[in-house]
Design a protein around this nucleic acid. Structure first.
Lengths: 321, 321
DNA sequence: CTGTTAGCGCTTTCAC
DNA sequence: GTGAAAGCGCTAACAG
């Protein structure tokens, strides 16, 4: 490349990177660009990474569990948010039996890792030792025993509860039948619990609801038999909510007359369920901006900017609640 | 590292990579490993990539459109399949306004790219020039005018049609209301068309079905008014299928009595829809194996192995059809 | 303003 | 057996 243009390697570097504060002759500039064009020259990210010790890649680590509509959306928004900050976002889907975490990040050499599941301390220290910024998303650092005010982690559950509390005196929580999402479902259920407490409602009745009509019917029966009777259900997500709706139909009952149900995610199916499902929708673009900001700030060595706007939570009110 | 162990760099390399045909003293070997351990030494993928000109990363390029349940599953299966072949699979979600394709692959330096959407010839040649294996998935290279036998691309549609043909004389196709998935929906609709032709059924009636009950009701009305009347619907996916079901309910009609409906993906919501949805389920692990094999073979410079087993397609028969 | 040089960490080749 | 050295492509620093 340098040889071809008859120019020094450094000059080439300046031209191709549009380095400021370097005055390059227009002729030289043109010569370099022409040569680059002719040779189909492409800069080597590997070399650049080796030199800098850091790439511009942000590695997203997805957990093992089933990825639904919302997860896909979030990934897309994150991709966009990082791109706007000159960072390339790629995702690796964690899965039993796949490569170990260390193999992944060594293969990618990311500038930062944004994980949606917690990992071991040794992994974390190893990554930090390699100069990688590590950010764990979606989890409160407060620990399980925290009795703080409602945080963004459980704001979803709280929003569900508050909506139902307008017309229901006892709420239930439809918990997913998948242990893998427990880290996720727990905080949401906690949000419901806290909101109930704040509103003076009795403790919510949490039941696991598998994704079959029969099993859901069992749960519905139990809720209706409870004392005080449970008539408003906050579901972990739209799938679980639709399962509850199926359970109601199986018993010849109807939402919201006999029992109100509210989901999370506003997935496409929610709009056409029977009855159409009321659902909580998260501000995914906002959340993506938040994480992208955190990562960018960490990479720039900036202090953790806490002027972050809390992402909004919205209710898509339909007929089920 | 070498300095610390008092051993040559080459020796270190041999030990850490378990290079065969090199006889290393057990003492030296131990010395190296100890030093590596103590220093928390991690090999630099960037340097290795620079040296080899190729990493062990396979870059998956996802299209812009909404990622559903099946897409998430496929990504997980691909991750596993590639891991079993010593390849690290990461995914970049294509999205309007995000970085250009060339920025992505230059940042990652992948050994291969597995794309789920077609890209320009110039992109393809640029990547190949950079030594990257390029594989475009999910599309037939036969071109749009192909009248071949049913291929895997449209086998899904064919399976739907064949199931419905047992009890219905005229079929309809519920096409998604999203232009972005056209590349995907087209072949499936073609599969239905071909199966109808083979079975001596009239041409299927293709209608776009948005994801709202009202719009779906319109489509249902048109199908029932058609001549000959359409009573069996193949839907692009489960979401569209559930929309058709909603349209039926809106008109006071019922599946499968008034109209049978069959979806694709067997998403969680399908099992609890009203009525429970019959759906085509693809052999995602099989498909993942297929692609992983192709990529592996291409990287090994092997000829395209055509002893590939065609992934099976299965029907999850419930009540809607 | 332009050209040269060193070195990021790794592997391969060659010399001891 | 082990050690030294070159070079992958890049950029920062320095010399002309």
């Amino acid at each position: 490349m340098a040889r071809e243009a008859g120019v020094s390697r450094a000059t080439v570097s300046f031209v191709l990177n549009n380095t400021q504060h370097q005055k390059i002759t227009e002729a030289t500039r043109r010569r370099v660009l022409t040569a680059a064009e002719k040779l189909g020259y492409a800069p080597s990210a590997a070399a650049r990474t080796l030199r800098y010790g850091r790439s511009d890649v942000v590695l997203g680590l997805l957990p093992d569990w089933p990825l639904g509509y919302a997860a896909g959306q979030l990934v897309q928004e994150l991709t966009l948010a990082f791109a706007n900050r000159n960072l390339t976002f790629v995702v690796h889907s964690g899965i039993r039996g796949a490569r170990s975490l260390s193999e992944i990040w060594k293969a990618i050499t990311p500038a930062a890792v944004l994980s949606f599941e917690p990992f071991s301390d040794s992994d974390a220290t190893a990554m930090r030792a390699a100069g990688i910024e590590v950010i764990v998303a979606l989890y409160d650092d407060k620990g399980p025993g925290s009795d703080e005010n409602i945080t963004s982690a459980n704001a979803i559950g709280a929003a569900q509860a508050r909506h139902l509390a307008a017309s229901h005196r006892r709420l239930g929580y439809a918990y997913p039948d998948d242990e893998r999402v427990a880290v996720f479902a727990g905080p949401r259920a906690d949000g419901v619990r806290k909101a109930c407490a704040e509103l003076g409602l009795p403790e919510p009745d949490v039941r696991t609801v598998p994704l079959t009509a029969d099993a859901a019917a069992d749960a519905v029966r139990s809720w209706l038999a409870a004392d005080p009777q449970v008539t408003g259900i906050c579901a972990f997500n739209d799938d679980v909510a639709m399962s509850v709706l199926a359970g109601l139909r199986r018993l010849g009952l109807e939402a919201p007359r006999d029992m109100a149900v509210i989901g999370v995610d506003d997935s496409p199916a929610a709009a056409v369920s029977s009855p159409p499902l009321t659902s909580v929708v998260q501000d995914l673009p906002g959340i993506a901006e938040l994480y992208a900001n955190s990562v960018r700030a960490a990479l720039d060595g900036a202090p953790a900017t806490s002027n972050q706007v809390e992402p909004r939570i919205r209710l898509e009110v339909r007929e089920s609640a």
